[in-house]
Amino acid sequence: MLPRAQPVDADAAQQQQHDETTARMNSIIHEIRTLYDANTPLFTKDAIRKVGEELERCRKDAVDGRSVTLQGINGVDYEVLVSLPPIQYTLSEEQHVGGSTWVIMYNSIEHLTTERNVRTFSPNTAYLPMIIATCTRRIKPHPEENELHASSTEELGKAFHEIEQKWKTSEYYDKLQAALATVKTPIVLDKVIGVALGPLIIRTLVNRRSIIQHALISAIESILLQRGVLSVSSGRYVQDPVYTQRDRDVLCSAGFTILDDPQAFLTLDDSSILVSINPDIPVKQIVADICRPSIIIWPRKYDSVYQPIFFEGG
């Protein structure tokens, strides 16, 4: 006679699995923290370049379930599946979809070493400082500061010019001139790069804050050109995956060169000026690892109004 099967305690089995996953997650977090404290960089230009190449392949050949190779902070390569983005997003009035199908999700050390929901934890992505993901940008407009509306590229370009000219008559522009009047660099600089400055327009509402940040790039270039700190062949570069075609058209007309992610970080070097006012990616940690720009303009603390919602593949 066969022995009677013992009943399975589903709750106990589930709790055991939960405890095992939690223990593994905490072990990985401890390993990452140990590596980081030993000065292992999260980001290198070589690693950023490789992720950028994978991103470009995804964009050129949109295949669901594509396998990409990404390197973890532990030096191990991981195969990760990248799914096609949802065909349609359900957007609230505070959401805005940028011009890219996929983006690079840059993970800060805080993100990598924070305990996560066990249900969504994946050992295959836990070590990764960068992941290719689809993204919806949730943006909080400031109607009291953005009273202009634009329904065409021409109207947006006009609004850009008007806001820029008005800003140049403000006390903030005078303070900028005074601050830059004392700047000295050991070498002549050759580029001003803006990262994550935001979209110029949210639906039909002109984004005044973003336009002023872009105007800041132009002003820095103009002032430092006159002082000989920047070379006459210098350029203005900006990168933000949230740019739509209207944004790109207006910025190109205003003399900016648009860089696709992650080209801004690959272009950044010691002869650069970096401007990143309110980023939704860990720009400070990326820059600390990859280079030392001669001039950096960024906030003293993180206080982003741009909140990305990432959808990881795989």
Rank of each mutant, 00 (worst) to 15 (best):
R33I: 06
Y243R: 02
K158C: 15
A254V: 03
M105H: 15
R248Q: 07
S151N: 10
E162G: 03
T69L: 05
P262N: 14
R137W: 04
D190F: 03
Y106P: 13
L224I: 13
P85S: 10
I297H: 07
P86T: 11
A38Q: 00
E93N: 09
I73D: 01
V51M: 15
S272G: 04
A62V: 14
L274H: 00
E312W: 08
K184E: 09
T134W: 15
H149D: 03
G65C: 09
Q239D: 04
F310I: 10
Q263E: 13
Q263W: 06
Y237D: 01
I109F: 01
E54P: 10
P7T: 02
V68W: 07
L128I: 13
T34I: 01
I73K: 01
P143I: 14
S210Y: 07
I132G: 10
L148A: 11
R66T: 15
P86N: 11
F311N: 14
N117T: 09
A159V: 09
P86H: 08
S92E: 08
I258R: 03
R119L: 12
Q213C: 14
Q15W: 11
P123T: 05
L225R: 13
S92F: 07
E53N: 10
I28E: 13
E171P: 06
G235R: 02
R138N: 11
A5V: 14
W167A: 12
R209D: 15
I258V: 08
H214W: 12
E147F: 04
S304W: 04
K60E: 05
L112W: 01
K158A: 15
H149G: 01
S231Q: 15
V80H: 00
P141I: 10
G65W: 07
A219N: 07
T257M: 11
I211G: 05
I73R: 00
E31T: 07
E20G: 03
S27A: 11
K301T: 13
G52Q: 06
E221R: 06
L176C: 07
N117G: 09
Q285N: 00
V238A: 09
V63F: 13
G157I: 12
L274N: 00
